[in-house]
Amino acid sequence: MYAAIDGFLRYLKIERNASELTLKSYSEDFGSLLDYFRDRVGDIVDPAEVQIPQLRGYVAYLHECDYARTTIARRLASLRSFFRYCQREGLASSNPAKVLRTPRVGRKLPHFLTTEQITKLLEAPPANQDEGLRDRAILETLYSAGLRVAELVGLNVDHWDQDANIIRVFGKGKKERIAPIGRFAAQALYRWLEVRKEAPGAGPKDQGALFLNRFGTRLTTRSIGRMLEKYLMLTGLDKLTTPHTLRHSFATHLLDGGADLRSVQELLGHKSLTTTQIYTHVSTKRLKDTYENAHPHAAKNHRPGRGERPPAEK
């Protein structure tokens, strides 16, 4: 069983280009399952020995422990993927996780900032310090291109085509996409590159990194989070704001400005349009404005006829 799990994790890393964070999540999921087997069922030495009732007991155990539905759903997805791999490799004859019911998970509406709040945040980094120029470039790039924070820290200087003002982004599974950036982000990047100093003898991982820490090496996702927390305190903005909030704000403002859903899907690098549809809640105001401006019987355009009372003024 342990060898099968190790093989599956290697498969995810080498063939599926899974990120370290994804591999860590899968490892935790399998650790939870193996702990359950050891404590409640007994050691399972072979994936072919795992049966549906045992997995149903595991799901019941997760519910008893009050795990969030999202966590349970993720662990079930991990098990399905694992046993599908085992079937392909001849380690199991069936996928016992396939019949398990995934708990219904309500999708949270994404937290986003208004355009006024975004402006306040982007103007917070001091322009008279190298670190401030870097932070401004980071925030502008996150918002302008709608990047995931892992995509941002993976950027190299040569990923930015300065003539075309586009950046080459490597998303989940190392899938490449092209993201345009606006003039404010481009200006911030130009100013940052004027003061950017790479560490002497930087290793292969850090060479050419677009965003560097004070030691001249590549920034980490956690460093971006800490940096953002500093400016949230400075501006008094919602503390629930994360680097991903700028990606949510990017999609929200595009849709609210009239962009079509397919275009936003491409810009975000979403595989499925369903994932992008979570942002359509923000276009309610725009749809209402369009309706009131276009429909002949909308309150804004309707002219009462003879003997007809006009709608009461609010």
Rank of each mutant, 00 (worst) to 15 (best):
G258Y: 08
A259G: 12
E266Q: 12
H63K: 10
Y279H: 08
V45C: 03
G203F: 06
Q129T: 15
V45Q: 04
K197F: 06
Q162C: 11
L189Q: 03
A68L: 14
L210G: 15
V50G: 03
T274Y: 11
E229Y: 06
V41C: 02
N293D: 13
T284A: 10
K120T: 15
L91H: 14
A124G: 02
G106W: 15
G90F: 15
S25K: 09
F37A: 11
K205E: 11
T141A: 12
T290P: 05
R309S: 12
L21P: 03
Y58A: 01
G307P: 07
H295N: 03
Q265M: 03
H297N: 14
V169C: 12
R88P: 00
I118D: 00
D206R: 05
Y143F: 15
F184H: 08
G154R: 08
G258Q: 10
Q162T: 11
L267R: 00
K197H: 08
M227P: 04
T119S: 07
T235V: 01
H270Y: 04
Q129M: 04
E313K: 08
D161T: 04
W192S: 02
R69K: 15
F8Y: 11
R177K: 10
S272R: 08
L34S: 10
Y143M: 14
A188G: 15
L189F: 02
R69C: 13
G173L: 14
L287R: 10
M1W: 08
T284P: 04
K288C: 06
T102Y: 09
K197M: 05
E194G: 00
H270G: 02
S32V: 07
R191P: 00
A145G: 08
R56V: 14
L100N: 09
A294K: 07
N301E: 13
R183I: 03
L62D: 00
Q87H: 07
I167A: 12
I278H: 09
S94N: 10
L193G: 01
D256P: 00
H281D: 07
N156Q: 09
R191I: 00
E176T: 12
Y190R: 06
G132F: 05
N17I: 02
E20L: 10
V41K: 01
